[in-house]
Amino acid sequence: MYLMNISNCSGDLDKFQGDWKNVEQFLKKHQLDGVELICYQDDYLDTLPRSILKGLHLKYFPTWLEFYKNDLKKTCDMFGGIEGVRQYYGGTHPDALVDAFRHEYQTALEFGVEYMVYHVSHVTTEHSFTGAFDYTDDDVLAATVDLVNKSFDTNSDIMLLFENLWWPGLTLLDKDKAKRFLDGINYENKGIMLDLSHLMITNPKLKTSGEAAEYILECIENMGDLKDWIKGIHVNLSLPGEYMIQDHSSQYEVILETTDQVEKYIKTINHIKKIDWHVPFDHPLVKNIIDAIDPHYVVFELLSKNRDQLEDYISIQNKAIGRV
């Protein structure tokens, strides 16, 4: 099944004049079977046709470990005080995270989606610039198991797919860690959503899409039978090696001097976008990657400025896969 990512915020829906019927026509034109939705508030949901809604990308808190461990002082320092914490997490107690994901799960049940996507990662704003992490993959994986088991305490037909990132957590570079993580999750209908860009980012030496494809194929080979857990793929490209090896300390100093939390957030997001590009994977070896995994879901997860650019991006990716 071939899908594309979309959200219900105006930034995405304006590309389609705020009309889901236009989205449906767009999907048909590009041989896509539906969408993987990121849900913001309740905008546009009343007219969303359930027939095209296949997956729900769950809410993502990039920074959450300190809060979940109830280190409120450190969390307040990072978010400019208790009100900043409340705005970011929806509360000031670790249970706010459990409540948030329980709500997301209920939304998935109400929508009747086939799968949910959960990011398994943690990074502070400081460490996203410095890379000087004071937490490990194991720290993040153990806390995620605890949080997920509290939040998704009943099973359903909806698959819960865990997505890899390049920060500490589920990187998929260590199959034993990944297997222990999956074994610890009580939710039975589980698997992996392999994000190709996120896997590329773990190797800053990559310079071309061909090198990236060969690297991913090598990683898949090294996964062994862990590969069987991969039920979906986010298809996109990121080659930020030159940017990643730069010294970003001056950028972080600007962040520290920024008092407005919204402005600080925007500056941080712009930094992340220089790492995680979400542009088309234009090399024909991308088909070999899909064939090697044979996933249930192939999601074109792309970021575009407007509808014309999105048209171009999807066409490029369809051509690389050999679907035109």
Rank of each mutant, 00 (worst) to 15 (best):
M244K: 02
Q251R: 09
D71H: 11
L226Y: 00
I289G: 00
G84T: 05
Y118E: 07
N22P: 01
F61M: 07
A143P: 00
K69H: 15
A108N: 07
C76Y: 03
L172D: 02
L72T: 13
E83W: 08
I272W: 04
D228S: 14
L45E: 09
V145E: 06
D14V: 08
Y297I: 13
D294A: 14
Q87K: 12
S121M: 07
D19V: 03
D19P: 00
D99W: 05
I314E: 01
A142L: 11
N203P: 07
P280H: 01
N70M: 05
K273D: 02
Y187I: 03
S7A: 03
T63S: 07
V35M: 03
S7Y: 04
Q246T: 02
G11P: 01
D294R: 13
L3H: 11
L97H: 06
Y135G: 15
K175S: 00
E301Y: 01
D157H: 10
G81R: 10
R86I: 13
I201A: 04
I289Q: 04
M4V: 05
Y118C: 07
F101T: 03
G34Y: 01
M78C: 13
E214M: 11
L303P: 00
G11S: 01
V262N: 13
Q246S: 09
L72Y: 08
K29V: 05
D12T: 01
V120R: 07
T75M: 06
G232H: 06
A292G: 04
R307D: 03
D183N: 15
Y297K: 10
D225Y: 12
D174P: 08
L302K: 06
G131Y: 05
R307K: 14
K150E: 12
I192G: 04
Q261I: 15
T202H: 06
W229K: 14
D183G: 06
V140R: 02
G80P: 09
L32A: 01
I158Q: 06
I266F: 03
Y68Q: 14
T124F: 01
P295N: 02
L310C: 05
Y44R: 10
D282H: 04
E66P: 11
Y60L: 05
I230R: 00
D33A: 04
G11W: 00
Y68F: 15
D153V: 04
M116L: 12
D42K: 08
V85P: 02
L65P: 08
G322D: 02
V254Y: 06
S10L: 00
W64G: 04
N149L: 01
G224S: 02
I216L: 06
D308Y: 12
T154Q: 14
L310D: 00
Q31R: 15
K319I: 02
H103Q: 15
Y60Q: 09
M159Y: 08
N164C: 08
